[in-house]
Amino acid sequence: MKEGKFLIKDLILLPKKMYYMFFKRHAMITCEEAAQRLYEYLDGELSPADYDKIKLHLELCRNCCQRFEFEEILHTIIRDKTKSDKLPPSLKDKILKELEVKE
């Protein structure tokens, strides 16, 4: 193989064992592992490689896919429904005045 160049025909010539290694690295995770990482997935906290693993699992596993979809909707509802209370306007004035005194 020429240095720095990678051709498709080289890939075809790879021994079987190397294909196996490639797929093992990207291999399916179990449903249990997917469930463990559910919230990291929803919170956008997964590394790109782990994200891909979950995505692949969800594409191939209908059960997990349905559960993840449900959790995603629930997650959004919880975030939307915990809207904030208004800050009492007097509080800001009170704090600003106290800082004045502290000077």
Binding site: S84, D85, K86, L87, L91, K92, I95, E98, L99
Partner: peptide, 26 residues
């Protein structure tokens, strides 16, 4: 301030308490 007040209100449950916590924080 608004975010801090809201978090304080959820943790302390009472408005007066939440205001006190935010004041002390500042």
């Amino acid at each position: 301030m608004n975010s801090l007040y809201n978090a304080a209100l959820r943790m302390a449950r009472e408005r007066a308490e939440a205001e006190g916590i935010v004041q002390d924080t500042y």
